Simulated scan of single mutants.
Amino acid sequence: MRIVVDENIPLVEECFGDLGEIVRLPGREMTNEDLRGADALLVRSVTQVNAELLRSTPVRFVGTCTIGIDHLDTAYLENQGITWASAPGCNANSVVEYVYAALAHLNTDWAGKRVGIIGCGNVGGRLYRRLKAQGVECRVYDPFLSTEQIPDLTSLTDVLGSDIVCMHTPLTRSGPHPSFHLVGAAQLRKLKPGAVLLNAGRGPVIDNQALLKHLESGADLKVVLDVWEPEPDISRPLLQRVALGSPHIAGYSYDGKMQGTFMIYEALCRHLGRSPEKDLNALRPSVADPERRWAGGEPWPAIQRLIPEVYDITEDDHQLRALAERAEQAQADFAKGFDRLRKEYPKRRECGNYRVTGDVSEDAQARLEALGFRVQ
């Protein structure tokens, strides 16, 4: 069996090595010719899997180690009898921790604020439950859910009136509620002054040109973008205007990537009629220095100091802006550099790998555990 794999997927040899020959390739550069001898294809979101890529190949299984599937032509796959699988929820915790890291950097304490969530699936739903556990007031827009599922379900306009608006929506261009350019010029004008707008779902859910014009007009708005329209050759003028920018890595924690790989390993085993023989917990490496000391004092300033010790989001922002500056000076190809930042992304580990020690108050402990930390 020959398995062609995006070179950025971790634990491939450990999970799939017993199943066949592994061939690693750059995900954005895969071609039909690369797959002429392949039986299975493992990708991430940068690879468009469609008839052009798969026609006349022996591929019978496609697995994407990501939550989203908008890069898969699922109708074509099903019509050709090709089994496909995704990894829903694999990196949801990673994205939630990205949100917390961004808000901590912006000195925006979510406690006491109203948080609006657009899209309440795997990622948005996890963020919603974490915030509710901390007593945070939430408003949710998701036309595919009911108030029985999410009591705080409301209109898009109501959500846009929140202090913090987080977008975790998949990209759809058809159907009863397409998300393409869901937030455009009219919706941006509904945001309250001083609000935070964060998109860690799919770039085209926000009309990026409308957002740029809105910010150029002097709008009082803090914007955090991890996803862009288009990628990888994003709007560099927009990057200059946002409070934080990153190269589509919110879900790139090493733990999330490993979970995604393992979910596709299990799916391929099912496709082959085999029982999985691997254990993710046995494959997952431990953190070298898992202890973090609690600084003491009021919870919010201490949390602000603690989060960057685990995940310093400003480094992602710095790397993207440095790339943009080199591109402006004709010293780098921005699009290739954007992909390189993703390919060479450091092993960010999630909060659950760390324990916080020290004199932690009951209130602070509740907040730390909601963030995912273990408290000792």
Rank of each mutant, 00 (worst) to 15 (best):
V4N: 07
V4S: 03
E7W: 01
N8W: 01
I9P: 00
P10N: 13
V12F: 07
C15G: 00
G17K: 01
D18Y: 06
D18A: 15
P26D: 03
P26H: 03
G27E: 06
E29K: 11
M30G: 01
T31H: 09
D34K: 03
L35F: 00
A38I: 05
A38F: 11
D39K: 11
L41M: 03
V49A: 08
L53I: 00
L54D: 10
L54Q: 08
S56V: 09
P58L: 08
V62I: 14
V62G: 11
I67L: 10
D70Q: 05
A75D: 14
Y76G: 11
N79A: 11
I82W: 05
W84P: 09
G89A: 05
A92S: 12
N93R: 12
V95I: 02
E97A: 09
E97L: 07
L103V: 12
L103D: 14
L103Q: 12
L103T: 00
T108C: 12
W110L: 10
A111D: 04
K113Q: 15
R114W: 01
G116S: 13
G119W: 05
N122M: 07
N122C: 09
G124T: 03
G125V: 06
R129N: 14
K132G: 09
Q134Y: 03
V140K: 12
L145I: 09
T147G: 08
E148G: 06
P151C: 12
P151N: 12
D152Y: 00
T157F: 02
V159A: 07
L160S: 00
L160K: 01
S162G: 08
M167G: 05
T169G: 07
P170A: 09
P170T: 06
P170V: 13
P178W: 04
P178G: 09
L182R: 10
L188D: 08
L191I: 01
I206D: 10
I206A: 04
D207H: 06
N208G: 11
L211G: 03
V227P: 07
P230G: 09
P230A: 02
E231W: 06
R236L: 15
P237R: 02
L239H: 00
R241M: 07
R241F: 04
V242R: 00
H248G: 08
M258S: 14
G260Y: 06
F262T: 04
I264C: 14
L268A: 11
R270M: 03
H271E: 13
P276I: 12
K278A: 15
N281H: 14
R284M: 14
P285F: 10
V287S: 15
D289Q: 12
R292V: 14
A295T: 02
G296L: 07
G296T: 01
P299N: 02
W300C: 06
L306E: 13
D312V: 01
I313R: 05
E315C: 10
D317W: 13
Q319C: 12
Q329P: 01
A332M: 10
D333E: 13
A335T: 12
G337C: 00
R348A: 14
R349V: 10
E350N: 10
N353G: 15
Y354T: 05
Y354E: 11
V356I: 15
Q365I: 03
L371K: 04
L371W: 05
F373C: 09
